[in-house]
């Protein structure tokens, strides 16, 4: 099992305040801390690696610019960054006018030294999981990535997606249930085939 270290909110706010006051070290610390999850989130929703890189770059350039303007984030930096990333991805998809596709071969299960059996199980199923995810709606994919991939809280996910907490609960349940049906159907096809 992977445990994500969630950010310490007061520390995050202090860092953000320092960044807004023009401390370069704080800005770069934010970049170093938040680039991986933001990039990963984008990468999961965008087909091409270079496009994902461009979009991640756009997110952090917007952040640096926003620090100098009135719309600078004051709280919940992580949520702010994910929200910007979400908008950037949406704009990208509008430009492409297509649903995001995922190149499954570029994904693999994260290495874990805790349980070899789990490593084996998830290595085996990662492609299948991705195939099932690709069949979900964009919102369902997003809620799964944010809630389970990035382990954001309900509140953060609701804020980023612009929905209520109740809607997120329902959406994540339906998304996983849909994946379950798809996986079962795939399993049956395999066994029959």
């Amino acid at each position: 099992m992977i445990l994500l270290v969630l950010p310490d909110i007061p520390e995050e706010d202090a860092l953000l305040t320092a960044a807004r006051q023009g401390q370069e070290a704080a800005v770069m610390q934010i970049y170093e801390s938040y680039f991986p999850p933001i990039y990963e989130y984008i990468r999961l929703r965008v087909n091409d690696r270079h496009e994902a890189e461009d979009l991640a770059s756009e997110v952090f350039l917007k952040f640096v610019k926003a620090l100098r303007g009135p719309n600078a984030p004051r709280h919940s930096l992580r949520g702010w960054l994910f929200k910007v990333a979400r908008n950037v991805i949406a704009t990208h998809h509008v430009k492409l006018k297509q649903q995001p596709e995922i190149e499954l071969e570029e994904w693999f299960a994260a290495p874990s030294d805790q349980d070899p059996e789990i490593i084996f199980l998830h290595n085996l199923n990662s492609q299948t999981i991705h195939e099932a995810m690709r069949r979900l709606t964009a919102d369902q994919q997003e809620v799964l990535v944010l809630r389970f991939g990035q382990q954001l809280s309900l509140e953060e996910t609701a804020d980023i997606m612009g929905k209520s907490i109740g809607a997120i609960k329902t959406m994540q349940f339906r998304a996983v249930e849909s994946m379950r049906r798809l996986l079962n159907a795939g399993r049956k096809e395999e066994s029959y085939g």
């Binding site: 990963e40 690696r49 570029e106 991939g149």
Partner: peptide, 20 residues
């Protein structure tokens, strides 16, 4: 199990580091 499977999905760390 599915949610745990989604949690296991990660971009290769080398790719992240290069982009970063």
């Amino acid at each position: 199990e599915i949610t745990r499977g989604i949690q296991q999905l990660r971009v290769p760390s080398a790719e992240i580091a290069e982009s970063q």
